[in-house]
């Protein structure tokens, strides 16, 4: 398959590269720059937290980077493919093969069981699950405490369980990059810790690239890089920090940010 060749070919290149990407909403005086000339690269294997005040452009960043939404200007290169050169179909296939998602609110296909949801990326790409992948999925299901619920429909799962199924789905197919919008938003602090540890392990031991939007300094402290967005611009790019350091960092921006 061409995509896996290009994947190996670009082993040293960043998984995600954005060059002067802007995303504008509205017209005339009501115009909002949700992203304002953002340039950033996310290397393979990194666990990046994206933080910033509400309305600063984090979700927009994720949508544009993942090819869910068009940039107004600039270029996004995802898994070696410039998105502006791909049509809707090409981007859909790219997402299917290279991107894993955890959304904030609505994650699972209601008519599919938890396991079927986890296996959906394989089904869509027409890939067979190898014995090795099967083992990885079993391990994920176990670590995420989903073993007993695996045949249940989403409507029979709690919000936190649904979120964990989504996390298992994102990790299962070992995509080039996982985008997660507040993946611990619905979890109590203990399962939240377990999920974050799992994400960090996936990144450190299996080289899984992860970009995670979060408001929570504790969650962000699991990442090895912290990007801070304010008013559509990247205003901070830090290495790993403690929750306390992150809180201090954010307070500066919350005060500075327009209401």
């Amino acid at each position: 398959m061409t995509s896996s060749i290009s994947l190996q070919h670009n082993q040293t290149q960043p998984v995600l590269a954005m060059h002067q990407v802007s995303k504008l909403y509205g017209e005339g005086s009501g115009r909002v720059a949700a992203l304002d000339e953002v340039s950033v690269a996310i290397p393979r294997g990194g666990f990046t937290a994206i933080m910033g005040p509400s309305g600063s452009g984090k979700s927009t960043f994720m949508n544009v980077a993942a090819g869910l939404d068009d940039a107004t200007s600039g270029e996004v290169v995802l898994a070696g493919q410039p998105l502006s050169k791909l049509g809707d179909e090409g981007r859909t296939v790219l997402r299917r093969e290279q991107v894993g998602f955890v959304f904030q609110a609505f994650n699972l296909v209601p008519t599919l069981s938890a396991l079927e949801n986890i296996l959906l990326p394989f089904d869509l790409a027409g890939r067979k699950v190898t014995a090795e992948q099967r083992q990885w999925i079993d391990q994920l299901v176990h670590t995420l405490g989903l073993a007993e619920r695996i045949d249940h429909r989403p409507s029979e799962l709690s919000g936190g369980q649904q979120q964990r199924v989504a996390i298992a789905r994102a990790l299962a197919s070992q995509p080039a990059i996982i985008f997660a919008d507040e993946p611990t938003g619905n979890l109590d602090s203990r399962s939240s810790r377990e999920v974050l540890t799992l994400l960090r392990t996936a990144s450190r031991e299996y080289g899984q690239t992860i970009a995670m939007v979060s408001h929570d300094p504790v969650a962000a402290s699991y990442a090895d890089r912290i990007l801070v967005i304010a008013d559509g611009r990247i205003v901070g790019d830090h290495g790993p920090l403690t929750p306390q350091q992150i809180s201090d960092l954010l307070i500066g921006f919350e005060i500075g940010a327009p209401a």
Partner: peptide
């Protein structure tokens, strides 16, 4: 919308 995000083509 979710299916589209996860890779269902039009």
């Amino acid at each position: 919308g979710l299916l589209r995000a996860l890779g269902f083509t039009r």
